[in-house]
């Protein structure tokens, strides 16, 4: 008898697509039930969205003013209280889930599994280590609650075809006041597709050389309706914000099409995108490691190739 609780990720208004991917992960081992908990100041709209996800039995709303910001120290005691009725507690392997789930696990006195990428049975999992260079199969004790984060790039989103029950729960858990949310600074607007869920991504690397030149990456992305990503080198150089970083310590994504412009292909970057459907690399260094994993490589100067590529793509086939 396995019962799964998934902690919803959201921005206060919208459910993050990572939650739908956690549902698919949970469905893959056919548990007896899958519930989602939404912790927010006002969770109504988010709970309604969560209730549409195929495979979900109940959405639990926990509305408290202190849940307005996603502070792990505040959310963890509430999740761990709810967790006692479940065999598995899952969250996405996003910065939200990575911050929260280990805190939940420790409060429950159990370990945590990070980045599960496939499930053999309810207590047997695969996950990557060493930046994805090694895949391990791990068996968890059946005596303890399994707390885990889900590698979202390994799962498709569960379809929004459901109408699950929604129930409101009031928790009286004591919450700490030692942590205070100040602000969220975001550089990227909403006008482009979300990097983590986009079907197509165009990423730029150090070879772009400047913030000004990086606009070329945006232009190509806009031509095909893609999200924009970047290598660590491009973020370190200040061409774009950290939220665009793809790689071991940034976002791990698997779009249908990934176009890498001027990215050499350090293993830390490759681990963030090597599950993409089709990989295209444009780099003037024909020895660049990115070509080892690219489906289509073009070893030319990107400053001449990208404008030409934009023109060609605008032409109707």
């Amino acid at each position: 008898m396995s019962r799964v609780l998934i902690v919803a990720e959201h921005d206060g208004n919208q459910l993050n697509p990572s939650t739908a991917k956690c549902v698919t992960c949970a469905k893959s081992f056919s548990p007896d039930s899958i519930d989602i908990v939404v912790l927010a100041a006002d969770s109504q709209q988010i709970a309604n969205q969560a209730a549409t996800l195929s495979g979900v039995n109940t959405v639990i709303r926990v509305d408290r003013a202190s849940n307005a910001a996603p502070l792990a120290a505040v959310l963890a005691p509430q999740v761990s209280e709810l967790a006692l009725k479940y065999t598995h507690v899952l969250g996405p392997s996003t910065t939200f889930g990575k911050d929260l789930m280990p805190r939940v696990a420790a409060l429950l006195g159990v370990g945590q599994l990070s980045d599960i990428m496939s499930i053999d049975n309810a207590y047997k999992f695969k996950r990557p280590i060493y930046a994805g260079n090694v895949i391990i199969t791990v068996v968890a004790s059946e005596e303890q609650i399994v707390v885990a984060t889900v590698r979202t790039a390994s799962y498709d989103a569960s379809e929004p075809t459901n109408q699950a029950m929604i129930e409101t729960r009031s928790l009286t858990t004591d919450l700490p006041e030692h942590t205070q949310f100040i602000e969220l600074r975001s550089n990227s607007g909403n006008e482009r597709p979300d990097l983590q869920t986009a079907a197509q991504v165009v990423s730029g690397g150090r070879a772009l050389g400047s913030t000004e030149n990086f606009k070329m990456v945006y232009e190509l992305a806009d031509t095909i309706g893609a999200a924009v990503g970047a290598s660590r080198a491009a973020v370190d150089s200040g061409y774009v914000g950290n939220e665009l970083q793809v790689g071991q310590t940034g976002k791990i994504i698997a779009p249908d099409l990934y176009i890498a412009l001027g990215i050499s292909g350090a293993i830390q970057h490759l681990t963030g995108m090597k599950d993409s459907g089709t990989i295209v690399a444009i780099n003037k260094d024909s020895e660049a490691p990115i070509f080892e994993i690219a489906d289509f490589g073009l070893a030319v100067d990107l400053f001449s190739a990208v404008p030409e590529l934009i023109e060609e793509l605008k032409k109707q086939p």
Binding site: T179, I182, E183, L184, R185, S186, S188, N242, K251
Partner: peptide, 13 residues
């Protein structure tokens, strides 16, 4: 803090 949505600022005791 470097989070998926950008930079989050928190204050802790």
């Amino acid at each position: 803090r470097e989070v998926d949505a950008g930079l989050e600022v928190i204050k802790v005791e």
